[in-house]
Design a protein around this nucleic acid. Structure first.
Length: 280
DNA sequence: AGCCAGGTTGCGG
DNA sequence: CCGCAACATGGC
């Protein structure tokens, strides 16, 4: 176990973990506890210091939180109007997290037409029922299962994970896991492709549409131009930006790419978080 | 009770 | 390409 003391600049741990992009972090007292691969990580922020306890290397933590992203530069690209300016002001320091692509893919397949709290529950049950045990501070945590652990899972057992679409989704996830186990689909390799090609590959898996593909690209495959259009993003874009037209999701994605540019994904996450919380 | 949640698919037009 | 219905869980 190591304790990393990491100086940070323009970073806000709470916003980063609360904004709805990750499902495996829990907040207790003044600590966050999350699970990355087969490691538990306990994190807290004090001003410009991030304190992280885990067996991960410091480089893994920095990479995971994208602490090397130049947030000033990103803001310069996306801060183009009053709406997003307010979102950025409110959630200054929120960063896109770099998740594990496999876990990210399955999590977002589970996310469809679902609530974030329920997605968290489902991912947690999947991990508990099929993942490896991890000991951390005398407690037991569970790693997200590897592809082969889902591929070999009994369908009825898998269906007990509280999926939004029950057994249908259990089958879907098992099918995807098998494809990935077979070895002719390397998620990691999608990082080497350009955005469009990587997206096409993801969508060819089946059970993955534009929205989930864009989430996986943005949250795990370094495609910061991906702009996932979900119900909240559609709502805020329609209301604040594309007021006159009845914009299809395709139109919204294309508009976002033109308007926000290569960091459209960052803009998306600020707008998403803002739209869901501004009333609170 | 009814509405809605980080959607995808297959169909007809 | 678009719009539409089916899919079918659970919290408020």
């Amino acid at each position: 176990m190591k304790t990393h003391i990491i100086p940070v600049n323009k970073f806000d741990l709470d916003h980063t973990l609360r904004c709805g992009q990750v499902f495996r972090w829990r907040e207790n007292k003044d600590n966050w506890v999350g699970i990355l691969g087969n490691s538990v990580i306990k994190a807290k922020q004090k001003g410009d210091i991030l304190i992280a306890e885990s067996d991960l290397d410091i480089g893994d933590v920095i990479s995971y939180f994208r602490l090397n992203d130049d947030l000033d530069d990103i803001y310069q690209h996306i801060n183009k109007d009053e709406v997003i300016n307010e979102a950025i002001a409110m959630y200054d320091g929120m960063r896109i997290i770099k998740q594990d692509p496999w876990e990210c893919l399955i999590s977002y397949v589970c996310s469809r037409q679902n609530r974030i709290e329920k997605i968290k529950k489902t991912v947690s049950i999947i991990s508990k029922n099929f993942g490896d045990e991890i000991q951390f501070e005398n407690k037991i945590f569970y790693a997200f299962p590897k592809p082969y652990e889902i591929a070999k899972a009994n369908l009825d057992d898998l269906a007990k994970c509280n999926f939004r679409f029950g057994k249908i989704q259990a089958e879907e996830i098992k099918r995807i896991a098998k494809l990935i186990c077979k070895g002719d689909f390397y998620l990691e390799r999608l990082k080497e492709l350009d955005y469009e090609s990587a997206k096409e590959m993801l969508m060819s898996l089946g059970g993955v549409g534009h929205k989930v593909a864009d989430c996986v690209l943005l949250f795990s495959l370094d495609k910061l131009e991906a702009f996932p259009v979900d119900v909240h993003v559609r709502r805020i874009v329609q209301r604040e930006y594309l007021k006159d037209e009845n914009a299809s999701d395709k139109k919204i994605r294309e508009w976002a790419g033109r308007y926000f540019g290569r960091y459209a994904g960052y803009a998306q996450q600020y707008l998403f978080y803002y739209e869901r919380t501004k009333e609170m």
